[in-house]
Simulated scan of single mutants.
Amino acid sequence: MFSFRPKFAAQFVFITPEPEGFKVEFGIEPGTFFNPSGFRIDNGEEAIWRTRRPGCLTGLGCTFEDQRAEALLDAMLTGDAFRFVFRDRHGQSQDLTGSLGTFGAAWADFTVQSQQRNLLTMRE
């Protein structure tokens, strides 16, 4: 959540185990418009991953599967921060940076717990 009442606004990321890998879906409110280079992962001063998919940049739908999800997850594990530059559904300009510093530990826990619940099988 990045804006509180009365102009509530938030973004979410959902990672789901799938039979052939993972699905990564961003929950972006309709009416959100990203800068063309404003949906990315940075490592230091370098952008190591970005999307310019129209659905992601306009809040219409932003889902990654198969190799695209793997590339995104790899960037999340090696990058420093998510960077989001956009105008929210209320017309407010936003420039947000979210640390990925603890993502590695969260990802390790997620994969262990998914395996224990038979939601994920180990792939080589």
Rank of each mutant, 00 (worst) to 15 (best):
M1W: 07
S3H: 08
S3Y: 02
F4T: 11
P6R: 14
F8I: 13
A9W: 02
A10I: 10
F14P: 00
I15H: 03
T16D: 09
T16Q: 12
T16I: 08
P17V: 03
E18H: 02
P19S: 07
G21D: 07
F22G: 05
V24E: 04
V24H: 07
E25R: 15
E25V: 09
E25S: 15
F26Y: 15
F26T: 14
I28W: 02
E29D: 12
E29W: 14
P30K: 12
T32M: 07
F33S: 02
F33Q: 04
F34M: 06
F34G: 05
F34N: 06
N35S: 12
F39M: 12
R40M: 10
I41P: 07
D42C: 04
N43L: 11
G44E: 04
G44P: 06
E46V: 11
E46T: 14
A47V: 11
I48Q: 07
I48Y: 02
W49E: 02
R50N: 13
R50E: 13
R50T: 11
T51K: 09
T51G: 09
R52E: 14
R52V: 12
R53N: 13
P54N: 10
G55N: 05
G55Q: 06
C56W: 07
T58W: 01
G59Y: 06
G59E: 05
L60Q: 11
G61Q: 04
G61S: 01
C62R: 12
C62I: 10
D66T: 10
Q67F: 04
R68F: 03
A69W: 03
E70V: 12
A71E: 15
L72E: 11
L73G: 05
D74P: 00
D74M: 04
D74N: 13
M76N: 06
M76F: 03
L77R: 15
T78W: 03
T78G: 03
D80E: 05
A81G: 01
F82W: 15
R83I: 03
F84W: 14
F84G: 06
V85F: 10
F86W: 03
R87K: 11
R87M: 04
R87P: 00
D88N: 15
D88F: 01
R89C: 10
R89H: 15
R89E: 14
H90D: 13
H90L: 08
G91T: 01
G91R: 09
Q94W: 01
D95H: 09
L96I: 15
L96G: 04
L96Q: 12
T97I: 14
T97W: 07
T97C: 10
G98M: 04
G98R: 12
S99D: 07
L100E: 11
G101E: 12
G101N: 13
G101Q: 09
F103Q: 12
G104Q: 13
A105W: 09
A106P: 00
W107S: 08
D109L: 10
F110G: 08
T111C: 09
T111G: 00
T111I: 05
T111Q: 14
Q113H: 08
Q113W: 02
Q113C: 02
Q113E: 09
Q115I: 05
R117T: 05
R117P: 00
L119S: 01
L119I: 00
